[in-house]
Amino acid sequence: MVLFRRSLGDILRSRRTDLGLTLREVSGAARVSLGYISEIERGQKEASSELLASLCDALEMPLSDVLREVADAVALEEAAALVAAAPTPITPRRAGEVVASAA
């Protein structure tokens, strides 16, 4: 199952590390507790829309970009899950058809 909060956390953490920011720096800028941001980044907590907007401001990233990246990540995971779950097609043999042996 694809978890939105896990993909969101991955994207927020990636942006923070790309900017070279610590959790403490983002916490101060967003006015959100360091521990809560850590739990969001690890996909353990859901972020409200207000909190997510504060984090996006602190990370200098538009909310629409974050949501677009999350949607793309979720779509890729869903596609991979569909491919993995797809049954292998079995082609029926016709009467009298000979199958070559590897031996």
Rank of each mutant, 00 (worst) to 15 (best):
S54F: 06
T88L: 09
V26G: 02
L82C: 07
L67R: 13
D18R: 13
I90E: 06
L55T: 03
R68P: 00
G9Y: 00
V99D: 01
A86Y: 05
S7W: 01
V2Y: 10
A30Q: 06
L23P: 07
G35E: 08
T22F: 07
G20I: 09
L82S: 14
A73W: 01
M61I: 15
D57V: 13
V66L: 14
E78L: 14
E69W: 08
E60W: 05
G28F: 05
A95Y: 05
S49P: 06
G43V: 04
E46Q: 11
A53Y: 11
G20H: 06
L82M: 11
V70R: 05
L63F: 12
S101I: 13
T88C: 05
P62D: 05
R31Y: 10
E50T: 15
R94I: 10
A80T: 07
M1L: 08
G43K: 00
V98K: 08
E60M: 15
Y36V: 06
Y36I: 05
E50D: 12
A29M: 13
R16V: 11
L23W: 00
A58K: 00
L8S: 00
A75P: 02
S7V: 10
A73H: 11
F4I: 10
E97D: 04
A86K: 10
L3K: 14
I37E: 02
E25T: 15
S38P: 02
T91G: 04
I37N: 00
R93Q: 06
P89S: 09
A47G: 00
R93M: 02
I11A: 13
I90V: 12
R15H: 10
S7E: 13
L34C: 05
E77K: 13
S54C: 13
I37F: 03
G9N: 03
E39T: 10
A58P: 14
G20F: 08
R31W: 07
L52A: 05
G9I: 09
V2D: 11
R68V: 08
R15C: 06
R31D: 09
V83D: 07
A75Y: 09
G20V: 09
V26W: 07
E77P: 02
